[in-house]
Amino acid sequence: MEKGTFTVKSGLAQMLKGGVIMDVTNASQAAIAEKAGAVAVMALERVPADIRAQGGVARMSDPLMIKEIQKTVTIPIMAKCRIGHFVEAQILEAIGIDYIDESEVLTPADPDSHVDKKKFKVPFVCGARNLGEALRRINEGAAMIRTKGEAGTGNIVEAVRHIKTISLEIENLKNINKNGNKNSNSFESLVREYRVPNALIEQVAKLGRLPVVNFAAGGIATPADAALCMQLGCDGVFVGSGIFKSSDPTKMATAIVNAVAHFDDPKTLAKISEGLGDAMKGLEIATLNTKMAERGI
């Protein structure tokens, strides 16, 4: 019997596809998320919008709070550790978290390196703005990728930018592969640019997609936002502040779950989008003091 293998780690991400993972800060929010049909919850102390507003160093959540959530819901529970903070990751693994998000939403702990994720039995998801970042994280052992977007803004523009960038860069790899010049300079220069082994780049060129599940995250605030990410090719979505910073979290959570299930059906999406109250207020990217997406590249 083998535990903690890459197959088992990426396998859980495969089973989350088509689902919505919701940020929650206590057990009662977790119960609301599960009831609405969340496929997993992300336990954290403050949603990204509050981290932005309140400032200060954002760290791993109190294990006691996570345990309360574990007692309350039956779906997988994720939690965030700071970029490079392998001791926070060890603590989260020790309390039986199902997935760790090594997240730019928290204040980075290591200016140079991410956690060596291959050392852990628990799987990791990491954010990426482009193919190079995604492949570096996979090479470090991440079993799932999400776009960084710009967390806590309720503004979808950065997530869309990251989804399209990754798609374009994979398209480029496919073309190099198709033209039969994968051993030429173009592949070698990508090995240097992305700082990952050639085999990983070749694998992506052959698959025509990332070798792990890829979710959208960072700025999703409405059912239409979630469906947009799905139509752009994501496997599922994370919703951070978008649910519990809206005027009616139960309604919004349910609507976003339904929108991901029916992402390609505009008539159903129209019905889902009716009468939800106010979405989170949101921020213009140009007004931000801190761009979280620029952390941990």
Binding site: M1, K3, T7, L12, T74, D98
Partner: peptide, 14 residues
């Protein structure tokens, strides 16, 4: 019985 082996770290292949 749902999720009968424990958290994800107990998931396995064999």
């Amino acid at each position: 019985a749902r999720n009968a082996y424990g958290p994800q770290t107990e998931s396995f292949e064999q």
